[in-house]
Design a protein around this nucleic acid. Structure first.
Lengths: 148, 148
DNA sequence: GCAATATGCTTGCAGATGCAAGGATATTGC
DNA sequence: GCAATATCCTTGCATCTGCAAGCATATTGC
């Protein structure tokens, strides 16, 4: 496997699996939301007015529109999300963060940061973390959906 | 978001989603297998004798044992996988690559390499690809399941 | 040796997800 | 203006996945 793009793509897939596995347990037990739901809240937090049309949210999360419909429903029920209509276009139905969601987000971010800290705990210097960050930013350049 | 570990963890999750989305379409339409099934074959290819106990395969793929049972079944049906028993321990049931799987793997690897090439097409020099590769290797150090 | 425990695998059930179809609303072509 | 088309959202269905339970086999403690 001397092909560097292939190697890097495989390693990114595997690294993401490792990170996801680390996060999954603590997220659902401590915060009552899944990692995907957390990422959904992050996308909304980053958006203007903390709201996005469902189709737009779907694109940014790489999921189908129906998944957005179904992911949002329980989060509306527990008061983390609300609905907002567009005055001009009655087809649009925005997903909006509530105040409770901001609180939940700050808690969940702390968990995320803690786990991310473990992942990069050993043998990583500040400069190396910065270099990796730069490479990943380049990889995500051009995607609408960058969260960080 | 000045916390570098957090930024890097988020970017890895997003990069993996991008890469997966790129691969998914061509994989199922051209090769008739999903990305996950491809990764399963890769794990087996890397293993001694091209075979692994189901529990071991589950650990390496970060999925449950039941998922292995259900993922392997259709692949056995289409002749890419076979079963192998352990003479000492009757509980063990190995998953083994068939010859057909080696053929399928080399085709699928070409697709993977092509898509990985697109991902790193622009503005990436050989030296930078090597540096990124080194960082990701460090991230995966200590995991049993490294494929590359 | 045998009971108690541990391990490997499979299956029933529930939750998550994508696709295709359908209903509602907007936009376009004429 | 109106028909044709496009867009947004939701829902039915199929698929994938995890968890918990169950069964078979190994290992351990005595």
């Amino acid at each position: 496997m001397t092909d560097l793009p292939t190697t890097n793509a495989l390693r990114i897939l595997q690294s993401a699996d490792e990170i996801r596995a680390r996060l999954a347990g603590e997220f659902s037990s401590v915060h009552g939301i899944s990692v995907n739901e957390f990422l959904m809240l992050l996308h909304l937090e980053k958006a203007p007015k903390h709201r996005l049309a469902r189709v737009e949210l779907a694109k940014r999360m790489h999921v189908s529109a129906s998944t957005i419909t179904r992911m949002a429903a329980p989060l509306e029920k527990i008061g983390l999300l609300a609905r907002d209509a567009d005055e001009r276009d009655a087809r649009l139905s925005f997903v909006v963060l509530t105040d409770a969601a901001h609180t939940k987000l700050s808690e969940a971010k702390a968990t995320f940061a803690k786990q991310a800290g473990y992942v990069f705990q050993d043998r990583w210097g500040e400069d190396e973390l910065g270099q990796l960050s730069g490479f990943l930013e380049r990889l995500l350049a051009g995607t609408l959906s960058r969260l960080a």
